[in-house]
């Protein structure tokens, strides 16, 4: 990011002269319209020792998500549900500023946003993660690894999380109870005998950046540097908004928030549809699929 900020004053000049976006023509510097995403590359099952994993590349933004299922005890207030744990690691790979504990603040912020967008009953059916009420459940550790940032982190991360959850398979277990009432957990012998999560209602984040009088989706680092405030909307595939947050140091007026929300819903639905089709296509190829990973 540091490199961008050294050019910020010249960018602001460019903005004043209308160089960053030509809104009358609905055209941005890289040739996109205001509601267009950059090309998104999604690949699932990239780390073989996880329950599910995905890598998403959105422009220069590169995200790797690994999901690990581990057995734990259900929370007291929800005895018949499992739960998700989020962790975001902003590695020094992305920028040297994240070295040591430098990326912790951003990591916590993103993790908290993820907790918030999943904090509703419809996102993931947590009851399927329960093994035996009050005693055992599956805990899904969703670990996000930030490898390179090129703007629009939140959207890329939410897409990667959805893809990784889609790819997740949890081994099926049976609870056996003997005459004395002691319980035994038996793991299925067949590695293909597993539970898959339904990701139909898993939301994706659409970030709308306010630049001048208009808003754009999927801002690059340069565009983010020009925007004073942005609105983060998490939308499900049906267009239901599960969470909304304003980020950035500037302010937004209520009217534009409603406008941005509408755009968010519209763009989010399209995004979900294309993501779903890509994931199903990849799934249908099965084990024959050529794995590319970081070698391609």
């Amino acid at each position: 990011m540091c490199r961008i900020f050294s050019h910020i004053s010249s960018l602001k000049v460019a903005l004043r002269h209308g160089h960053i976006c030509n809104f009358k023509e609905d055209l941005r510097v890289d040739g996109r319209g205001c509601e267009d995403y950059r090309c998104v590359e999604v690949e699932t099952d990239v780390v073989s020792n996880t329950s599910g994993s995905a890598r998403v590349k959105l422009g220069h933004t590169d995200i790797l998500v690994g999901v690990k299922a581990e057995m734990g005890t259900p929370k007291l207030e929800k005895p018949n549900e499992g739960y998700l744990e989020f962790f975001v690691d902003c590695s020094a790979n992305a920028t040297p500023e994240f070295e040591g504990r430098g990326g912790d603040d951003l990591g916590t912020e993103i993790a908290n946003t993820l907790y918030r967008i999943f904090n509703n009953k419809s996102s993931v059916d947590l009851k399927t993660l329960c093994i035996s009420p009050r005693e055992h459940c599956w805990v899904l550790y969703v670990d996000v690894l930030l490898l390179e940032c090129g703007g629009n982190l939140f959207d890329a991360i939410s897409i990667a999380v959805k893809a990784a959850l889609f790819n997740t398979s949890i081994p099926r277990v049976r609870v056996l109870e003997d005459e004395e009432g002691s319980k035994d957990i038996e793991l299925s012998d067949d590695p293909y005998d597993c539970i898959r999560l339904s990701v139909e209602n898993v939301p994706c984040i659409v970030t709308l950046c306010k630049i001048g009088y208009r808003h754009v989706v999927d801002a690059t680092l340069q565009e983010e540097a020009c925007s004073l405030a942005s609105l983060l909307v998490s939308v499900t595939s049906k267009g239901v908004v599960t969470c909304m947050r304003k980020v950035g140091k500037g302010s937004l007026d209520p009217e534009s928030i409603f406008e941005m929300m509408e755009t968010g819903k519209r763009v989010g639905k399209v995004l979900h549809a294309s993501l779903q089709s890509v994931l199903h296509k990849e799934e249908s190829l099965g084990p024959k699929r050529q794995k590319v990973g970081f070698l391609g």
Binding site: V47, L64, G66, D89, A92, E99, G100, D143
Partner: peptide, 21 residues
């Protein structure tokens, strides 16, 4: 020469709590 090694929390068989440090 400044080096930092970190390993992803999901890299090992059992999940790690911290990637580095």
């Amino acid at each position: 020469v400044n080096c930092q090694y970190s390993s992803a929390t999901f890299s090992t068989g059992e999940r790690k709590r911290r990637p580095h440090g």
